[in-house]
Structure formats: C-alpha cells, structure tokens
Design a binder for these strands. Structure first.
Length: 173
DNA sequence: CCCTGATTCGC
DNA sequence: GCGAATCAGG
C-alpha cells in the first residue's frame, strides 16, 4: 500500500485533529505508526505543538542489516492503539452510553464478547439490544484504561474533541 | 508495561 | 521517498 492522495489527505486531517500516529495508522490500515510518523515528517507537518524540549539526539551508531524481527502485524480484528488525553479518562466514566444499536457497525463474530468475557482491555461498546440474545460488546482491543477501542472512542468522544486537544496543548506548552 | 513523537539510515 | 529500528520520554 502506498501513500495515495486520499490517504495523505486523511493523514493530514487526522493529524490535524490531534490523533496519535498509532491511531491514524489503525485508521488508515496497512501501515504502522512509524510509517505515519515518517510521512508526517516528510510532509513537514510535524511538531503539532510542544516545542521539542528534547531536540538534540545523540545520533545512532551505524547499524548493519539485521535479521529484523517481524514488522508488527496489525491485527485485523482490533482497531489498533488508542491513547487519548488523560482528561478523557475522567469523561469515560461519565460518558453517556453510546447508542446501543448501531446498524452501521458490524463486529467480527470471533471478536464479540459478553459481559463475562470482558477484560480491562476489551472494548465495551455495546452492540445490539441489551438484555436480548443479540446483545454483545465490541470486544476490540482497548488500551490505557479507556473503555473503547480506537474506533469507538472516536465516536464516543467526538463532541469533546476540540476541548480535549486544547487542554492537551495547554499543559504541554 | 503501556504509550508518545523524533531521528537515522538502509533500502 | 519509505519506514523499521531505535531513541527519549510520559
């Protein structure tokens, strides 16, 4: 997969929205966060804020071609990494229950889970009508205490996105 | 350990 | 130009 115009445009948009490189990578698919970061730099739109306090890098001692381990294979079943500002974690607890039945979302059967299979790292986005047989949770991989996977977190917190970003920049500045 | 972006450099 | 490996940090 290459950087088509559409993908680059989406990259710019998401980066501008303050999403992390790994989130963007998950959103784009078929690329790692390193690829995203590399592209961001080449496009010259790095440095979203925070004046790099850690500028000077000691250089890397030339490296030879190594057996290089597998390039992290993005799991098709999950929505990849997630990491939102700490402020969001609080909101997560009070976040209004997302609309139960989302006709648009279809989760792979193998990923779905019930209340019994939920762990700290599974997406709790409800699917279907609670209490009925068809009900289940997304079950995608969530991280850092967030209750949702990257995909559902975006949906759940959309209205607050602006505030979140501003806050983040505020304390980083 | 989870994650973040930044950089280097072989390809 | 691309991005894995690495680094430095939270």
């Amino acid at each position: 997969m290459s950087w088509t115009d559409e993908r680059v445009e989406l990259l710019k948009k998401l980066w501008g929205d303050g999403l992390s490189a790994s989130q963007i990578a998950a959103e784009l698919g078929e690329v790692t966060r390193n690829a995203v970061i590399g592209k961001v730099h080449r496009l010259g739109l790095s440095g979203r804020a925070k004046t790099a306090p850690t500028a000077a890098r000691p250089r890397k001692p030339a490296r030879e071609a190594e057996p290089r381990r597998d390039a992290r294979p993005q799991r098709p079943l999950t929505h990849g990494a997630t990491a939102l500002a700490p402020e969001l974690e609080q909101m997560a607890e009070e976040a209004p229950a997302p609309a139960p039945q989302s006709a648009d979302n279809v989760v792979p059967i193998g990923q779905r889970c019930t209340i019994m299979n939920l762990t700290e790292s599974t997406c709790r986005w409800p699917m279907g009508e609670p209490g009925t047989d068809g009900f289940y949770f997304c079950g995608g991989k969530s991280k850092q205490g967030l209750p949702y996977c990257a995909h559902h977190a975006r949906i759940a917190y959309q209205p607050v996105q602006d505030r979140r970003r501003d806050r983040r920049l505020a304390y980083l500045a």
